[in-house]
Design a protein around this nucleic acid. Sequence first.
DNA 1: GTCTAGGATGTTACGATATAACATGTCAAT
DNA 2: ATTGACATGTTATATCGTAACATCCTAGAC
Lengths: 178, 178
Amino acid sequence: MLRYNMSIRPAMPDAPGPALADPAFAAHDHTRCTAAALAAAEAVCAREGGRLTPVRRRTLTILLEAHRALGAYEVLSRLAADGFGGQPPVVYRALDFLQARGLVHRIRRLNAFAACLRPGEAHQALFLICRGCAAVAEAPGGGVRASLEAAAAATGFAVERASLEATGLCPACRGEAP
Amino acid sequence: MLRYNMSIRPAMPDAPGPALADPAFAAHDHTRCTAAALAAAEAVCAREGGRLTPVRRRTLTILLEAHRALGAYEVLSRLAADGFGGQPPVVYRALDFLQARGLVHRIRRLNAFAACLRPGEAHQALFLICRGCAAVAEAPGGGVRASLEAAAAATGFAVERASLEATGLCPACRGEAP
DNA sequence: GTCTAGGATGTTACGATATAACATGTCAAT
DNA sequence: ATTGACATGTTATATCGTAACATCCTAGAC
């Protein structure tokens, strides 16, 4: 049975299924993608400056392992459980650091954060948020971004960053609750 | 001198300039567009149900007159100054009502709300937020929406609603602070 | 007219999200 | 060892949003 593989906000069984062709929805090996993302994070820090300190690394792995979007306070409580500082600024600073390097994305419709699935590559993320199961997929948004820049250019506006977020129904939920 | 005509978050002189060709940036007659938007609001309520009660009407006019994006509590304090209830649920309920009918948009990057510039017409809004002067323009996002739906369809996701928000520099600020 | 059901509002209290400000600590380069 | 930049710890508070329940208004049934 097919499920979005990604960022989910409320608690949901975190059971990976068989791999699929489309990476946006494919269930996959969390251990492997976590290790890969951490390696990418190290590389990004080496390139762009800043250190991947224990709190930052742990923040990133929490998001990677959760494999869904988490609220800042949800991340914070896990950090605290691991002995890292238990005050809000700790997690917000770590998230800021990771965001600035493209290792973590902020999902504004959810007031939540998700680990980037393509760390290191420059890309425009497009978030697809299912209202049925609360899954959040990160899809490639390059085309949408280009279209957005064209629309903005028509008014003389120079786009620097864009939030592209959609709510709707994922393939599984379309079948169940149309 | 050219300025975005629209939604601004921090206080800023609200001085309309000469009209321009492109409606997205044109400065214009607030009185007229406020009246037009209110008429459209009445029409929408008549069509879709619900009453444009005093609080709701005043909430809408506050956003129309401010002609910029306002935080909910900012709207609330103006409501309170006019003798309407001073508690948060009052303004959130009014905003929910107006949003549901497309008369008000929520701008998630700013945690703020802005009156819709095209009430009554079905449309996808695209918000252009200037980091120089904090102006917020509502541009037509139909093309971007189409592009987004195409990207989503590739993964089987059915889009229902989309947030399209970009930060960058407006024409005026591009010249001043490049 | 008055009854009534649904919608609308008033109010209290609280939850959730985020940041300011300042003290302390760490580490690498001199 | 000293220093300067970065990183973290901590307190307090700002900002945004909602649950829950009481009250009220209004349109339609009778």
